[in-house]
Amino acid sequence: MSATSILVAKWPVLTRHQHAVAWLQAWEDLGRAPRTLDAYARGLAEYLSLCEREAVDPLAAGRTHVAVFVRELTSRPHQRGANVVSIESGAGLANPTIQQRLVPVRLFYDFLMEEGLRDSNPVGRGRYTPGRRGSGRQRGLVPRFSKLPWIPDERQWLDLLDVARREPVRNRVMLALAYDAALRREELCSLRTDDLDPAHRTVRVRAETTKNRLERVVPYSAPTGVLLTEYLAHRARISRARGPLFLSESRRNHGQPLSLWTWSKVVRRLALAAGVERFSTHTTRHLCLTDLARMGWELHAIATFAGHRHTDTTLQYIHLSGRDLAEKLKSGMDHIHSWRVQMLADADMPQAVMGGARDDDRFPV
Rank of each mutant, 00 (worst) to 15 (best):
L232W: 09
G116Q: 05
A45L: 05
L175S: 01
R137D: 00
H337D: 13
H335K: 15
R206C: 04
W261Q: 13
V353K: 09
A345R: 09
R76C: 06
G332I: 06
A82G: 13
L73K: 04
T129N: 00
E277Q: 11
E72T: 06
E327I: 04
M343K: 08
D110L: 05
P152K: 06
L148D: 04
L228H: 01
L344V: 09
Y231L: 07
A61E: 05
S2M: 04
V70C: 06
D194S: 03
D312Y: 03
T290Q: 10
R216D: 03
T229L: 10
V103C: 07
V226I: 12
A33I: 09
M333C: 05
R71K: 12
E28M: 14
T36I: 01
D180L: 13
A20D: 13
K10M: 12
L315T: 10
Y317D: 12
Q25G: 12
H234E: 15
A164W: 13
K147P: 00
Q18G: 15
G124R: 03
I151R: 06
P219E: 11
L73G: 01
S75L: 04
L73F: 05
R172H: 05
E46C: 06
S75D: 03
R185W: 06
R165L: 10
R63N: 01
L141N: 02
D334H: 08
G355H: 03
L245E: 06
G31I: 08
F246D: 00
N83F: 10
I6S: 10
F111M: 03
K147D: 08
G31D: 07
H19F: 05
P168K: 01
H234P: 04
L160D: 00
M349I: 13
W23P: 00
Y128H: 09
R71A: 14
V218D: 11
F69W: 04
K330R: 11
R139N: 12
L299F: 07
D180A: 12
Y220I: 02
K10V: 04
S89F: 03
V205P: 01
Y179H: 10
S75N: 06
L158D: 10
W23A: 01
L228E: 01
E54D: 13
H65S: 11
E277C: 05
F111T: 03
L161S: 02
R16W: 07
I336W: 14
M349C: 06
R192Q: 11
Q79V: 15
P350G: 06
D359A: 10
G243E: 07
F279S: 02
V205E: 00
M174V: 02
G124H: 02
L292Q: 08
G126I: 00
R201T: 08
W263M: 07
H234T: 13
Y220P: 01
R213Q: 07
A207P: 06
A91C: 05
L258G: 03
T74M: 15
T129G: 00
L325I: 11
K211C: 02
A181Y: 00
L329N: 12
T284L: 14
L320D: 12
G307L: 05
P34L: 02
N212F: 11
R216T: 03
R235T: 03
Y128P: 00
A22D: 08
M354Y: 14
